[in-house]
């Protein structure tokens, strides 16, 4: 799937903003005279995902990608803007079991996301029971067995507890659970970053196989650009709650245009650069509580000028890719 979307989007995110109140407690604020402090985790973000494709969001810690993941499945209600799933408003969609079961989530930590006191069968069967997708013990067991086989485990693994499995196998259980409600949309928040590389390869291959076989749509969240490149059709690069570059993954990774995307790509240690001598860009991601005015990347940007310090950049479209950068717009 390229940049032009022929079919209607499965997920459509339009101008959403997510604010969190991170003020100190009321009494403390009263005594110390502190103001109310608001963290803008997501700032005017729009994107859409066509059925059967993968959109990835990348960025460093604190850029808002995990908040976006939670918003996309309705775990948060956005402060502003709208999210539509299969043509319906997300909060309305979540109220209907028929639509609610079509979205699910895979989390980063396979140790924390599985209940250690439950048998694997019960973990995987929970969504089946919840949505009444199979009736009777035998039917549920058969379905769980099929799901476990689908993710590369065996039906007999259902009679074990999560602690009896390795990290990679646990992530397979998480995937089986996510598939149990027969969804077509999965939000994957750093699904392999807790895993070793050889296991990561197994899980990424499994996810791609499942996507092809079941026609799944993924919103894939990661900080690892090489993983993202492997998985994505489209890519959004996030910085301080905004998407700074959005478009076809191949195009962005081949010709990154936003200075931050270029910084990220340049910063990755790669096997093809043995003994590379580099001049890394200085600075770190500023606090999202008090982001810099104008373009929030300007304090670290080699191309910044006065306009960048004052005016928030709008999107410029180059080669089908949206880029929020004054320098790109002016051809600097």
């Amino acid at each position: 799937m390229g940049d032009t979307m022929t079919s209607p989007a499965l997920l459509d995110v339009a101008g959403i903003t997510q604010r969190f109140d991170v003020s100190k407690p009321w009494l403390q604020r009263l005594i110390a005279g502190d103001p109310i402090r608001v963290l803008r985790a997501i700032d005017d973000v729009s994107f859409s995902i066509a059925p059967g494709t993968t959109l990835s969001l990348v960025g460093e810690s604190g850029c808002g990608k995990s908040t976006m993941a939670r918003l996309a499945v309705g775990l948060y209600t956005p402060s502003e803007g709208s999210i539509r799933f299969a043509g319906q408003d997300l909060s309305a969609a979540r109220a209907q079991p028929a639509l609610r079961r079509r979205m699910n989530m895979i989390f980063q930590d396979p140790y924390a996301s599985l209940n250690p006191r439950w048998l694997v069968t019960d973990i995987v069967a929970e969504p089946i029971r919840q949505f009444r997708l199979a009736q009777g013990k035998a039917a549920i067991r058969a379905r769980v067995g099929a799901l476990l086989t689908q993710v590369g485990l065996t039906a007999a693994d259902g009679d074990k507890y999560p602690h009896e499995f390795s990290g990679g196998q646990r992530q397979r259980i998480s995937i089986a659970r996510a598939l149990a409600s027969e969804p077509d949309f999965l939000v994957c928040d750093e699904p392999t970053s807790a895993l070793d590389v050889s296991v990561q390869a197994q899980i990424l291959n499994l996810m791609k196989d499942l996507q092809r076989r079941l026609g799944l749509t993924y919103l894939f969240i990661s900080h690892n650009l090489a993983v993202v490149r492997h998985m994505s059709d489209r890519l959004g690069v996030m910085y301080l709650g905004r998407i700074v570059e959005l478009g076809a993954a191949e195009t962005i990774l081949r010709t990154p245009r936003h200075p931050y995307t270029r910084l990220l790509l340049d910063a990755i240690p790669d096997l093809d650069h043995i003994g590379r001598a580099r001049t890394p860009v200085g600075g770190e991601v500023p606090s999202p509580i008090a982001p810099p005015p104008g373009c929030s990347f300007h304090p670290r940007c080699p191309l910044a000028n006065d306009r960048c310090r004052q005016e928030k950049p709008r999107y410029t479209v180059v080669d089908g890719v949206q880029i929020a950068c004054h320098a790109v717009e002016e051809g600097r």
Binding site: S198, A201, H230, L271
Partner: peptide
């Protein structure tokens, strides 16, 4: 196997080569 299983920035493969098992 370890080197092959690392996704590369330089070229995109349809499937990563994996070492089965753990």
């Amino acid at each position: 196997g370890l080197m092959d299983s690392i996704p590369s920035m330089a070229h995109r493969a349809e499937r990563l080569r994996q070492i089965d098992g753990a």
